[in-house]
């Protein structure tokens, strides 16, 4: 028996919005420590890794490890039927071929359940090695989304250059070029508005704007985003999900041939 309950459907709606741009379908691996999902996008350029810890749910029970392959478009149709303040419960029997989403209104007067067929997905799991990154940037998630959106008008690629003074985002193309520099915050009044840089050595890397823009669909989940970079290895874009886990995106850099 698997059962996981969240007191507000908003979190699950936001999590789904954060991944469905990149993934059509994905396997939710459930065990007694929580729910994990790892999947590459169709073109195998980026990797999505989601962790929802058991202790972050209002109720969590998973008697046997369970892998639930879901069509995220179908899941989105179901989640659309939930009000933000509904309680949402996911339920499945052991070895089930369906999962049930149950929504309960706050006053308990409306209860809906939606049963969705599960899929057998043949997904490759990748081992991500522990890495000491040359630069780690923490910045407001809204600011990062704005920069990706603005600069993607000027080119397909975004260059991120990080030094201890700050981080510079650049794009260029037919129109011309655009640069946005963010200085490291000197005095932190509001932590969520700070730009913090931990630098071992400076890094300049180039990434496809299209994927960065997809990652920023996770912005409603949290105030701050963390970018971890080292030369010629994938960028990690991490959004923490308060009290329950995180979604991480790994993006392969563009490299000169």
């Amino acid at each position: 028996m698997f059962e996981a309950r969240l007191s507000s459907a908003t979190t699950l709606k936001k999590v789904l919005d954060a991944i469905k741009d990149l993934l059509n379908e994905a396997t939710f691996d459930c065990n007694d420590s929580g729910i994990q999902l790892q999947a590459m996008d169709n073109s195998h350029v980026s990797l999505v890794s989601l962790t929802l810890r058991a202790d972050g749910f209002d109720k969590y029970r998973c008697d046997r490890n369970l892998s639930m392959g879901m069509n995220l478009g179908s899941m989105a149709k179901i989640m659309k039927c939930a009000n933000n303040d509904d309680t949402v419960t996911m339920k499945a029997q052991d070895n089930a071929d369906t999962v049930v989403f149950m929504f309960e209104s706050q006053n308990q007067e409306k209860v809906s359940d939606y049963e969705m067929k599960l899929m057998n997905l043949d997904q490759e799991h990748l081992g991500i090695p522990e890495t000491d990154y040359a630069c780690i940037v923490r910045m407001p998630a809204m600011e990062f989304a704005r920069i990706c959106r603005d600069l993607s008008q000027f080119g397909e690629s975004l260059v991120i250059c990080c030094t201890k003074e700050g981080v510079k985002f650049s794009a260029s193309g037919d129109v011309g070029s655009a640069n946005i520099k963010l200085a490291q915050t000197t005095s932190v009044d509001k932590e969520e508005e700070a730009v913090i840089i931990e630098m071992q050595e400076p890094v300049t890397l180039t990434f496809a704007c299209r994927y960065l823009n997809s990652f920023t669909k996770a912005t409603p989940l949290t105030n701050q985003v963390q970018l971890s970079m080292s030369m010629d290895v994938p960028l990690v874009v991490e959004y923490r999900i308060q009290d329950i886990g995180h979604v991480r995106y790994y993006l392969a850099p563009k490299i000169e041939d």
Binding site: H44, L47, E124, G127, P234, A252, P253, I255, E256
Partner: peptide, 14 residues
């Protein structure tokens, strides 16, 4: 033009 790498080339298949 820089070439786009495949994410799989950086991580090991489990």
């Amino acid at each position: 033009e820089n070439s786009q790498k495949n994410i799989r080339t950086f991580f090991l298949s489990k």
